[in-house]
Computed example of a mutant assay.
Amino acid sequence: MPDVLVLVDHDGERVHKSTYELLAAARRLGDPAAVVVGAPGTAARLKESLARQGATSVYAAESAEAGEFLVTPAVDALELAVREAPPAAVLVSATTDGREVAARLAARLDSGLLIDAVDLDSSGVVTQIVFGGSYTVRSQVTHGVPVITVRPGAFEPEEHPGEVAERALTLPATDPAASARITARRAAPAGDRPGLTEAAVVVSGGRGVGAADGFKVVEELADALGGAVGASRAAVDAGYYPHQFQVGQTGKSVSPQLYIALGISGAIQHLAGMQTSKTIVAVNKDPEAPILDLADYGVVGDLFAVAPQLTQEVAARRAVG
């Protein structure tokens, strides 16, 4: 079977869950081949976990300067892998960086590009949610090697252990004049909650939360469920919660097993970022809120009355089970 290239998203020590989802998607088209871009030794640290999740080969695209530039080294690595042995497709996670990598790669290869896929079949036909979530379409690349970005959470990781071959790619020197160099790094505040795009449960708050202090009820419910906290653009713009937690068309796209929306009316921009969630629960005191039409379960009521009761019930059931 032909290879399907998967760009590995990692922090140097750990492979992110979105990559395991890509490997599961890649198996529908061929043999998953993971492309690791990083400092020397990175691929060796990640190879075992990639093999456990089904990678049949690992391309090690390593250099001392790979982590000093944005996007360009990843594009270079994928282009080299494609030129070496044309794959059935290239899969990249639909993150901010991933979309840019995919677009640049497609331009270099003169290939078709499909973004934000939520499903993929064995013939290469991709399902997408487009125009802010208004339409579901099925598309297929008809020119060149398909380059596809996949929405985090769209596929379930599947352990598929086997032997893995390692191949080396020699990255070219990056032209500083044509690439964005990273001049400084600042660690984001870390907590015990899972990452927003990797969480199985996401609890989001909107304008209805009323104030930054009001997000305490959102956080308490998320912690009771072992989930991540999200926010609507209205809540972020109002200063209730940090921007990096925004869910929606101009924020992060999520597709968890359970999405709980507290005080979110359901503007189409927000729905575009979460409507592929497996189960959606909405709490809103406005019975005409658009999100109630999308929700699997809707509660018309005050979130400050409903959410604490739900948190208490979840905590009680966990205590006995």
Rank of each mutant, 00 (worst) to 15 (best):
P2L: 14
P2G: 08
L7P: 08
H10I: 11
T19G: 09
A24R: 06
R28K: 15
D31E: 15
P32S: 11
A34D: 10
A34V: 09
A39R: 08
P40C: 12
A44T: 10
A44P: 00
K47P: 00
A51P: 07
A55P: 08
A55N: 03
V58F: 05
A60F: 09
A61T: 10
E65T: 14
A66Q: 03
E68W: 03
E68S: 14
T72P: 01
V75R: 07
A81S: 00
P87M: 12
V92C: 10
V101C: 06
A102K: 03
L105P: 08
L105S: 09
R108A: 04
G124Q: 10
I129V: 15
F131M: 14
Y135T: 14
T142E: 12
G144M: 12
V147T: 04
I148H: 04
G153K: 02
F155G: 02
F155H: 02
E156S: 13
E158C: 05
E163C: 01
E166V: 15
P176T: 05
A177V: 00
A178N: 04
S179H: 02
A180K: 07
A184F: 09
R185G: 00
A187V: 14
G191K: 07
D192R: 12
R193H: 11
G195N: 04
A199Q: 07
V202C: 09
V203T: 01
G205Q: 09
A211P: 00
D213G: 12
D213E: 15
A224V: 04
G226P: 14
A228Q: 05
G239D: 03
H243N: 15
V247E: 08
Q249A: 09
K252E: 12
K252M: 04
S255L: 01
S255W: 02
Y259K: 08
G263W: 10
I264D: 13
I264A: 02
S265N: 05
Q269K: 13
T276W: 08
T276L: 09
V281R: 12
V283F: 13
K285F: 12
D293Q: 15
Y297N: 09
G298C: 05
D302H: 06
D302E: 07
L303D: 01
A305M: 12
P308V: 04
Q312E: 15
V314K: 01
A316E: 13
